[in-house]
């Protein structure tokens, strides 16, 4: 993807430079760009060090779990299926709270664990359904909760955009922090829209197999026990299990 991106931009630039006779400034730009990359990553290096360190500290102090507790009732509305069955619910809450603190390194594995757990639940569900009806269930299809999680993650949840602040400071902004509150509002609105849109689409494009749901749901509660928890999540699993039907 990056290679294509790079090539397309390069080809467009060279063609335009020839047309507009900007060849020499284009050559300068190549050299400048390479040295600017070093400048940029140097100005980001310190901030990224500091921030990852602080966030790791907050994580070890249990702040991520605190946020997860606060978020759980809200996320219940966004992921009705996952929270009803308990499958992936813990990973989802931890993923969202890690994302809010900007701990990308921790958030992505959690999201992938949640996706995998939901996937296993989906396969289990299909087995139960198939036992009761002959109709095949399409297993290549993402479930509503999977899509909501992916879309929510693809809209930013970051509470403090440190990289952006660092880049603004490097660019000589008089007040690099001024964007924090607007970023919060924009992120929050984007996340709310993401969830609402996903719920709306879920109803709009309801899957056929949903017809069997009322009959074949018992398989889920058994699954909960075998969901692999990630890291230190196991003590929290009891809460989720209690919430399951």
């Amino acid at each position: 993807m990056l290679g294509k991106c790079f090539s397309v931009i390069c080809i467009i630039s060279v063609i335009f430079a020839i047309v507009t006779k900007n060849i020499s400034s284009l050559s300068n730009a190549v050299v400048d760009g390479a040295s600017r990359a070093v400048e940029l990553s140097l100005s980001l290096l310190g901030v990224m060090c500091l921030w990852s360190g602080l966030m790791e500290l907050l994580r070890s102090a249990g702040v991520v779990k605190k946020i997860a507790q606060i978020l759980r009732p809200i996320l219940r509305l966004a992921f009705p299926h996952a929270f009803k069955t308990g499958i992936g619910a813990e990973e989802i809450t931890m993923n969202i709270s890690a994302n809010m603190l900007g701990i990308g390194n921790a958030a992505t594995p959690l999201a992938i664990a949640a996706m995998k757990a939901m996937r296993e639940g989906q396969i289990e569900d299909a087995n139960v359904v198939n036992r009761e009806s002959v109709e095949d269930v399409d297993l290549d299809v993402a479930t509503d909760d999977m899509i909501t999680l992916a879309v929510l993650n693809s809209s930013s949840l970051d509470l403090l955009p440190t990289t952006i602040i660092a880049l603004r400071r490097a660019a000589g902004s008089a007040d690099p922090y001024s964007i924090i509150v607007p970023v919060w509002i924009c992120s929050a609105a984007g996340s709310v829209l993401a969830v609402l849109l996903c719920r709306f689409f879920a109803v709009l494009f309801r899957q056929k197999k949903r017809r069997h749901d009322s009959g074949g749901r018992h398989g889920y509660t058994r699954r909960v026990d075998s969901v692999k928890s990630n890291g230190g999540l196991s003590e929290n699993m009891n809460k989720t299990r209690a919430g399951a039907p």
Binding site: F6, S13, I15, F16, T20, V38, L44
Partner: peptide
């Protein structure tokens, strides 16, 4: 993480800088 960012940032910053310089 930052060190890993440098190689791709290098390539793409060159490309973007070219795009701006080419007009």
């Amino acid at each position: 993480t930052c060190a890993k960012l440098l190689p791709s940032l290098c390539a793409l910053l060159v490309a973007i800088e070219m795009l701006f310089a080419s007009g």
